[in-house]
């Protein structure tokens, strides 16, 4: 299996994605942002389509769109709770529409759309792996420096205010990091299934681990397991890798919920 260069690239990229998603996911879940993350990935779809339209790589188009819009989306979805879901629907709809428009204008066939929306393993070149690695390292380095303040702001927003943490600055930095992570993760699971790596592993980890660092390690483990096993099953069966990764992560999350309800009963 590893004699094929595309499989090597896929495993390399998948591992990077799993690490970044596991770590970022813990904050996504703590900050209650799974849907906001999903919206970013839909914006990413429009960006990728735009990239194809003007002759960039899909990853660059995605990065451009998600980074610029992440802050805007953050501001909008910070609005009144009751309005939030509608605002997110409007943004998602608008950007998916734009994505379809760019794809149709660029005269590319529909397989392009499928690979952006649902991910593609074969499409990842060595050069893209290098770019993803650079982005991942960048995300991790920034996280390293803001870790303590981000942790306080994410897990105890009320307390963070009294610690004089600049909450809106932390939010903006986090959203930009999230835009990078979404763009990187979308390369393998596709923009429609960002949840699968940026939310589910972290959401599962919180039922087993009770410190932020333990949650991160466990979320990385869940994500890596899903990606590696999914790639393998995809290779063997020739079925879509995304299907396997999504199923594995969903099963892990389901098991975590069952474990939790059993543990609660016996308490």
């Amino acid at each position: 299996m590893f004699s094929f260069e595309f499989m090597q690239n896929a495993y390399l990229a998948g591992t990077l994605i799993a690490i970044v998603s596991g770590i970022m996911g813990v904050f996504v879940v703590a900050r209650n942002m799974p849907f906001m993350t999903h919206t970013l990935s839909e914006i990413g779809f429009a960006g990728a389509a735009f990239g194809i339209f003007i002759g960039w790589t899909p990853l660059n188009g995605m990065l451009a769109f998600t980074t610029v819009s992440s802050i805007l989306v953050g501001e909008l979805s910070g609005a009144v709770e009751s309005r939030r879901e509608s605002v997110i629907s409007a943004i998602s709809g608008l950007f998916i529409g734009l994505g379809i428009l760019f794809l149709s204008l660029s005269n590319k066939n529909s397989s392009y759309a499928t690979s952006i929306l649902f991910g593609s393993v074969i499409g990842i070149s060595h050069q893209e792996v290098v770019q993803m690695a650079i982005l991942s390292v960048l995300v991790l380095v920034v996280l390293f420096f803001i870790f303590r303040n981000l942790k306080d702001d994410s897990f105890d927003a009320v307390g963070a205010k009294t610690n004089h943490i600049h909450s809106s600055l932390i939010s903006i930095i986090f959203l930009v990091l999230l835009a990078f992570s979404v763009s990187v993760a979308a390369q393998i699971v596709g923009s429609l299934l960002i949840f699968v790596l940026l939310t589910l592993p972290a959401a599962s980890s919180k039922y087993f681990a009770h410190t932020v660092i333990q949650m991160m390690l466990l979320a990385i483990a869940f994500a890596i397991f899903g990606v590696w096993f999914g790639l393998y099953l995809g290779y063997v069966t020739n079925w879509p890798v995304t299907f396997f990764i999504a199923s594995i992560e969903a099963v892990i999350y389901g098991s975590a919920l069952i474990y939790n309800s059993i543990a609660n009963k016996s308490r």
Partner: peptide, 29 residues
């Protein structure tokens, strides 16, 4: 403060929650 956002699924242990107040640009651990 009077109110906190801590629901029944709040995952952090009491120990780790207390450690949140060690803020600033320092090593993560």
């Amino acid at each position: 403060p009077q109110f906190r956002n801590v629901d029944v699924e709040y995952p952090l242990s009491i120990e780790d929650f207390i450690s949140l107040n060690f803020t600033g640009i320092k090593l993560p651990w």
